[in-house]
Simulated assay, not measured.
Amino acid sequence: MHLSSDMLNAALAGTPEEARLPGRDLVEVARYLIPLEASLVQGCLAASGIPAVLADAHLVQTDLLLAPALGGVRILVPEDHLQQARAVLAAFARGEFALGEDADVGGE
């Protein structure tokens, strides 16, 4: 059986481990195999006022074949923003951040 990147991303993002980093209040809220998707979600979180950082993004970008072995790019947020971040992730999954065909993105 061949799994597409969308299926793997869904599997990783659907059940993220709430891995606490030693000495920090950051909590893992999602994982993505494709670094660009993780950056996009990080941007949506930041636009919603949630400080979010990417972990392992540069390592995965160096060699995409490492992504499954590393578990993808992790998105980390402060623990006190966890519920709000989950709501933003759910909104992203529903397509609420998608731009319409007629969206003005500032092009000339």
Rank of each mutant, 00 (worst) to 15 (best):
L3W: 15
S4L: 12
S4Y: 06
S5V: 14
D6W: 09
D6E: 13
M7H: 06
N9K: 01
N9H: 12
N9T: 14
L12Q: 03
A13Q: 09
R20D: 01
P22N: 11
P22L: 08
D25C: 10
D25H: 15
L26N: 11
V29W: 07
A30L: 02
A30G: 05
R31H: 07
Y32F: 15
L36C: 00
S39K: 02
S39C: 00
L40N: 02
Q42Y: 02
Q42K: 14
G43D: 08
G43T: 03
C44R: 09
S48H: 04
G49A: 05
I50G: 10
I50Q: 06
P51E: 12
A52S: 13
A52R: 05
V53N: 04
V53L: 06
A55I: 00
D56L: 02
D56P: 00
A57K: 01
T62C: 05
D63F: 10
L64I: 13
L65T: 13
A67H: 03
L70F: 06
G71Y: 03
R74Y: 05
I75C: 01
L76W: 03
P78N: 12
E79N: 13
E79C: 05
H81R: 14
L89P: 04
A90Y: 08
A91T: 02
A93Q: 14
R94Y: 09
L99M: 12
E101K: 01
G107W: 11
E108R: 01
